[in-house]
Design a protein around this nucleic acid. Sequence first.
DNA 1: AGTAACCGTTACCTCAAGTAACACTTACGC
DNA 2: GCGTAAGTGTTACTTGAGGTAACGGTTACT
Lengths: 228, 228
Amino acid sequence: MAPTVKGPDARRERWKGHREARRAEFVEATIKAVARLGPDVGMDDIAAEAGVSKPVLYRHFADKSDLYLAVGQRATEMLMDRLGPAIAEDGPIRERIKRIVDAYLTVIEENPNLYRFVVRGSFVDRPVEKDVVSEDKELIATSLARLLGDYLRSYEMDSGGAEPWAHALVGMVQNAGDWWLERQSMSRESLSDYLATIIWHAIDGLLRSAGVHADPERPLAPLRLVER
Amino acid sequence: MAPTVKGPDARRERWKGHREARRAEFVEATIKAVARLGPDVGMDDIAAEAGVSKPVLYRHFADKSDLYLAVGQRATEMLMDRLGPAIAEDGPIRERIKRIVDAYLTVIEENPNLYRFVVRGSFVDRPVEKDVVSEDKELIATSLARLLGDYLRSYEMDSGGAEPWAHALVGMVQNAGDWWLERQSMSRESLSDYLATIIWHAIDGLLRSAGVHADPERPLAPLRLVER
DNA sequence: AGTAACCGTTACCTCAAGTAACACTTACGC
DNA sequence: GCGTAAGTGTTACTTGAGGTAACGGTTACT
């Protein structure tokens, strides 16, 4: 008897997994709704898409921002799924940078509405306290920062600048992608190339100024990005 | 009689300047309100700050986005006022870039709420049609693109990449500044320096790859930025 | 004097986010 | 098996901010 002292009632634990699954289900519904109805869907539309009514939604998400945040995280996950392979591939550094950037652009090109929903679709309600949108950029930037930090340290350089670097790079690619997505005035290929050029030169210059002559062919050590 | 055939009535023209002034007045009030009440003020608050009631506001601005846009433009103007001198100063290029970046960071540091209002304070209502927020970034980026284009052409290089470059740079500085503004984990000085380093290396690398050896001391020709 | 522009108000409408209240289902605990 | 704790779901409401209607007063051109 009393196999676990802690749980006062097993009934409380029974649903743990279920709730998770339900949240995920609603997140998927939201993504579908966004794809169909554009980035400014309402909670009613989302609920309808999921085949339920609004209060059900609110039993799983505290408010709109909470849902938005979950969608953002899911989107980040989807993005990472595409970025991961691009990062893992080997080849000349310059080429790899380009492939990573290109993977990013491909993703936003394929899901423009979802993209807009996540980065633009702010949320008037929540003032400043919990900055939902940038939470995702933050995540990516943090991973990148770790990556850059390791990279710099592998050259025995000061890694203090890794964080600003990461945010700078994220902002750079994001903003350029944003601009490109709205008026597609050049091919994805070209943009990837331009951006990769900038990034590569920045990195190369940094190393160069530290007296390190980076080998563009160098495999760059094991690159792992996030592990959520 | 009938001194001017075109104007059916002089009474229509009489207010031209006045309306402009009034709009400006409301824009100023909005900026004050934002500074006091944070970036998510309502129209009522703004009207109150201006000492009038809401409908008056709506006689001068079609809707919230219209006001936001005007505020954004004003903010951009203020920013340019600070960036202008930094751009005009001479000195080594690397130094100048740093001063420009630093000027930007100083501005957002001095008006954090206004900054948040402009870049974050999206607007749920207006879906995609008129992208109010990025209109300002657009403006800056466009100026920068012209500047870069001229610069590249002065070295007789292909200027096709000027536009993506401009958007990339804008996004870079903006995002890094954003991150810095929220958790000020390093001095402005340091961040300016990191960013300037990235930018300078990117430019230098670009020129270098085209076989041009840029002189960091070169005065860089007359730099004019916008003229609105 | 008439009227075209402005000044300004209070009281309303609208619409989406979020909540209350109510009813049914499942399965653990004793 | 009965109580109950979790979940399922509904319709109908409240709230708040954006935005509008309708009204009245002032100035100055014609």
